[in-house]
Amino acid sequence: MAITKGSQPTWIKSSYSAGNGACVEIKSPAAHAVDVRDSKDPQGPNLAFAPASWSAFVTEMSRVDS
């Protein structure tokens, strides 16, 4: 999921969401953070990633998906 770091202060759902409930949402309210949560549990815990770590994760998942 592409995101411009520091320019997404609200949660957005993954573009890979198929409506089956297995979705993630992300936001990046600051240039130094990417937050991730389960869309089924918006009040639950969030994971925070450094931008480089999130980019590496997305890149690797893109390889697995193709």
Rank of each mutant, 00 (worst) to 15 (best):
H32L: 08
H32A: 15
V36Y: 08
V64T: 12
D38M: 10
A33R: 08
D41S: 11
K13N: 02
S39R: 08
S66C: 06
V24C: 06
A30V: 11
A30G: 06
Q43I: 00
S53M: 06
F57W: 05
K27M: 13
S53P: 04
T59R: 03
G19Q: 01
S28K: 07
I3P: 12
Q8W: 01
P45T: 06
S14M: 02
F57H: 03
A22Q: 14
E60I: 02
A52N: 04
Y16T: 00
G6R: 10
Q8P: 03
M61K: 04
T4I: 13
I12R: 13
I26V: 15
D38T: 10
A50E: 12
D65V: 14
D65R: 15
Y16A: 04
H32C: 09
K40D: 01
A33N: 10
D35W: 11
A52Y: 00
Q8E: 14
P29R: 10
E25F: 04
F57L: 13
A48T: 11
G44D: 09
E60V: 06
G19P: 07
A30N: 14
Y16E: 00
P51V: 05
S62N: 11
D35A: 09
C23I: 10
D65I: 14
S53L: 04
V34T: 02
I26Q: 07
A50P: 00
G19W: 06
R37M: 11
S15N: 01
S14D: 01
G21L: 07
I12V: 14
S15Q: 00
E60W: 07
I3H: 11
